[in-house]
Amino acid sequence: MIEIENLSKRFTLHNQGAAVIEVMTGAQLRVARGECVALTGQSGAGKSTLMRMIYGNYLAAGGSIRVGGLDVTRATPREVIALRRETLGYVSQFLRVVPRVPTRAVVAEPLLALGHAPGAAFARAEALLAQLNIPERLWGLSPTTFSGGEQQRVNIARGFAHGYPALLLDEPTASLDALNREVVLSLIEEAKARGAAIIGIFHDEAARARVADREIDVTGFTPRKAA
């Protein structure tokens, strides 16, 4: 479902003496349907960078990233937008929403964007919010004022509202209590069971051991420093 070949990434900082920073080279990765692959490596090794490249948020310097047949590195913005709407979900560590939009609408939005009827979309959103233990009295409020843990659960609900065939999860269990961590892990297991290909970053080792089928250490993709 996700096939990464010989991927490289560099940042050119034009306003800092045109410094060129090579951050990744020769990255290879394949994730099949129903499989969860955990990215490992120290902080700064490039886990989030790789994830952002798969999502089309960062441009690749070379190589290819195929998600459901579309090469994200060569796709037009319009194709990437369609991929993100239909095929590729991303639960980031940050919730970025229009202020004042109620939580249930934030969670239902991916379904509405796919043309689902509002009734069904909101019902699905509310079921997920309940499952993730967001109190019902908060559903009509904007999540911008919520605690970090609540925002993260809203983000997860939004990411799991549509059954994406491919999912990127950046620290989905960080800052969650045991109860909600369990809910998130079971959501991940359900997604795998329905055939989703998942790439995750989990600092929580027990969580990683439970849901990940394989680990890839991205340190192997870090360019060797010139002598």
Partner: peptide, 21 residues
């Protein structure tokens, strides 16, 4: 030109980098 979050998070041109930063 490009996808909004890509242009803002990984700007390529010197001017865009200056604008975003």
């Amino acid at each position: 030109a490009g996808l909004t979050d890509q242009v803002l998070d990984d700007p390529q041109a010197a001017y865009t980098q200056l604008l975003v930063s």
